[in-house]
């Protein structure tokens, strides 16, 4: 599979995750979101950027529980709950947000 963004073609796996992490550009996230009828707001970007930073540091995509806790710490307690994250990413914050961020599916996420 592949996704078009920025006039380029990016290879993805059968579930739509980017094959090569280093290919990622913000436009890839926008295109992936558009394909799922989702328009990215600043709130979405806060999560996407957080995920990319987390991966850069620890080399893993965080589990939802870890993401929730970390978002609460970084972006404020009112955002550190699964309701907030599921409103932003209705297909699941782990699955959907990690995909937009160009990361592999979180370990333990089915």
């Amino acid at each position: 599979m592949a996704i078009e963004a920025n006039g380029k073609t990016y290879e993805t796996d059968e579930e739509g995750y980017l094959s090569n992490l280093n290919d990622w550009e913000p436009e890839v996230a926008t295109a992936m979101a558009a394909a799922e009828d989702c328009e990215l707001t600043q709130e979405h970007w806060d999560i996407i950027n957080f995920l990319r930073e987390y991966y850069e540091e620890y080399q893993i995509a965080p589990a939802v529980r870890v993401l929730t806790k970390a978002v609460g710490k970084r972006l404020g307690k009112e955002k550190g709950n699964s309701k907030y994250l599921y409103e932003l990413f209705p297909y699941g914050p782990g699955k959907q947000a990690c995909k937009y961020a160009g990361l592999p599916k979180p370990t333990g996420c089915v």
Binding site: E57, Y58, Q59, A63, R65, V66
Partner: peptide
Amino acid sequence: QKSFSPVYMALGDY
């Protein structure tokens, strides 16, 4: 090989 050394640093989050 990919280094998994940084993953140990994330264990606290889990």
